[in-house]
Amino acid sequence: MKNILLPTDFSENAWNAARYALELFKNESCTFFVLNTYTPHIAHSRFMATNVASGMLEDAARSQSEEGLANFISRIHIQYKNPKHKFTAISSFSMLVDEVREVVDDYEIDLVIAGTKGASGLEEVFMGSNAVRIIKAVKKCPVLAVPQNFKFQTPDEIAFATDFNRFYTESELKPLLDMALTFNAVIRIVHVQHTISALTELQKFNLSMLRKYLKEVEHYIHTVSELNSISKTLEVFSDELDIHLLAMLHYQHSYMENITRELVVKRVAFHTQIPLLVIPELGMSGSSKNKKEHGAFISE
């Protein structure tokens, strides 16, 4: 059984990500952890003791969060009657990214699926600030970012963007391989080069190991010239080959790190129209079965 984390602020953007998740795993047994965090604004009044005001505001925020989660899960039950799926609601007085990180640890989460809002000014040049913070913070499982207007398509064409400069571990490639095997997908390994040149010996070795890991699935190598930026190149590549899912590893000097940096420096937006699977360095990571109290309540 897979454990999937769905952070939500009850927006249509978050609902779209949940719908994608339910379609993606409709044939698999899953527990979906639906998370909402709240941090009520504490207003100080000379007519009310601070601790009383704080308590009242926190109680109101908690009730609103729990009611929102109940309605969110009820909406799922009405539209998606799947006996393979169970739901756990988590309401937490916490900052979103901090709580996501804790829930990933405590509930052995296999995948975080978050909605992305797209660019809305220079401060949100990459998919919305919350999605980026989650991607940067989560180190123990992949994060799947779903664009706000993306309608579910079976991911039978998957692009894996990499430069072959780093050795891949089996645990890091497993999410990609599992996705390809589940949907009988073709993996298109895309290597973006500023200037087309031969691979180094290290790159050749890493590529050969990558192909061994992917021997069970149909895959192809695509070497493409950079178009202004890595992000723009991947957008064009994905559009031209009708890619349904873009995957990248996230580590120091990776494409993912470079894209995040170039978007800030060049003030451009990564207008990805397809889901983005970001896989952190998983080689040495472990997980814990320790379950903490997060204000969770079960809804099945």
Rank of each mutant, 00 (worst) to 15 (best):
L144V: 00
I109K: 01
P142V: 03
Y20N: 06
Q153W: 01
M284P: 00
S287Q: 11
A14K: 00
V192F: 08
E300L: 11
A21N: 02
T88Q: 14
H85P: 02
K84T: 10
K136H: 09
H253S: 12
E172M: 05
R75K: 15
A89V: 01
Y20D: 06
I134M: 02
F47H: 12
T37H: 07
G128D: 12
K140N: 12
L177D: 00
I274E: 01
R211K: 14
I113H: 07
V52Y: 15
N149W: 10
F150E: 00
A161Q: 03
F72N: 10
D98H: 13
K117Y: 06
Q273R: 15
T233S: 12
N3Q: 14
K174G: 02
K117L: 14
T182V: 00
L96W: 05
L234C: 08
A296T: 07
V100E: 00
N51P: 10
K151L: 03
D242G: 03
R46A: 11
I274R: 09
Q148A: 08
M127R: 06
S238R: 05
M95K: 13
A89R: 03
M248C: 08
K139S: 14
L6P: 02
K139D: 13
I158F: 03
F167W: 15
K136D: 10
E172V: 02
A21I: 01
E257C: 04
F25D: 06
E108M: 01
W15Y: 03
H222Q: 08
F297V: 02
S11Y: 00
S92C: 13
T8Y: 01
T39V: 13
N165Q: 11
D106M: 02
S54Q: 13
K81F: 09
P280L: 13
K139H: 14
G115T: 06
Y251F: 07
I135P: 01
R188F: 08
K26C: 07
A49M: 10
Y220C: 07
L181N: 11
V190G: 08
M209S: 13
T200C: 10
S94N: 14
H253E: 13
R261S: 15
K81D: 14
I230Q: 02
A185H: 02
D242W: 05
V143F: 03
N228V: 09
R62A: 15
E172C: 08
P147E: 04
K2P: 06
S254A: 12
F164H: 06
T233R: 06
R188I: 04
D156F: 06
V217D: 03
Q64G: 09
G283F: 14
M256W: 07
N184A: 04
G283Y: 14
K212M: 14
F237M: 09
K81G: 05
M95S: 12
V103A: 05
E281L: 09
K151I: 08
I135E: 03
L122E: 10
N149C: 07
K292M: 12
P7N: 08
H244I: 04
T39L: 14
F25Q: 04
H271L: 13
N258Y: 11
I4Q: 01
C30W: 05
V103D: 02
N3W: 03
T39N: 13
E67I: 15
F297W: 06
S197P: 04
E123I: 10
K136I: 11
L35G: 01
S45M: 09
G118Y: 04
L214E: 04
V103E: 01
A296K: 09
K117H: 08
K151F: 06
G55D: 15
L96T: 11
L263G: 07
L57Y: 08
A131I: 01
Y20G: 08
M179H: 04
A61D: 02
